[in-house]
Amino acid sequence: MGACNEMNRILDKKRLSETVYSMRVEAPLIARERKAGQFIILQLCEDFGERIPLTVADADPAEGSITIIFQAVGKTTRKLAGMDVGDKIAALVGPLGTPTHIENFGTVVCVGGGIGVAPLHPIAQAMKAAGNTVIIIMGARNKELLILEDEMRAIADELIICTDDGSVGRKCLVTEPLKELCEQNPKPDLAVAIGPPVMMKFCAATTRPYAVPTQVSLNTIMVDGTGMCGGCRVTVGNETKFVCVDGPEFDGHLVDFDNMMNRLNSYKKQETTDHQCKVGTKAGEPA
């Protein structure tokens, strides 16, 4: 079979919470090109493996490595979690997707729920570097499931932590502090919300009455990631968009979240997962 990539070696592996892992992977070309908001697609076996998208959470062009942070929810992510330093990922392609539009907006609220904090991290970093005041709201079900707290604290002008059970930070959903910020004068110039679809849906619903522009990053099902299959399509303001090329970020006020969530469930029947709880998926869901 064709050229196997010499790259894609796992350089480092960390467990961030019960089901969330961080890996540094050798990928010099992707490390050099990637920008905030972009993702890769990986495959653990070329013949029968599935192609799954993961955000580039961080990159070190000098070392030639990228960092991926993922939650072990199903077949591929669990198998990946079982791999060790030195192992090679069979296929890794990227960076894919349109980079986040970064500029000095003024004040940007970054809202991350559960594993969504991972893709949010490079965006918050870039927003800060562009001169924005960055307020970060992080949500998780409980203290144990909170990831990247130190990394986010290092970026944030203000950091608000919310947990469902109040084990750390405020006992509330992320939408609560978001609403408070929108009520302030001046209100934030931009909100960026990344997390489970329900959370993004309610973040968008929260900011809408205040007309605070809200970016969301959609995690649809993908196959090729290059605009060829249309499997990742979503309805945005009555138009069909392909998340892998037109996104993954869109105007949260225009996304049809219900349709998107439906499409995410397309293969529920076939994916024989043991319904292990998905960490933090409830964050942001209204009580």
């Binding site: 196959v223 299959c229 499997g231 069909t240 439906n262 469930n265």
Partner: peptide, 16 residues
């Protein structure tokens, strides 16, 4: 109804 669950492009169906 083109984005309902169960609607595929032929590209996606055949690629899968």
């Amino acid at each position: 109804g083109e984005n309902l669950v169960g609607v595929y492009s032929a590209n996606e169906y055949l690629t899968r």
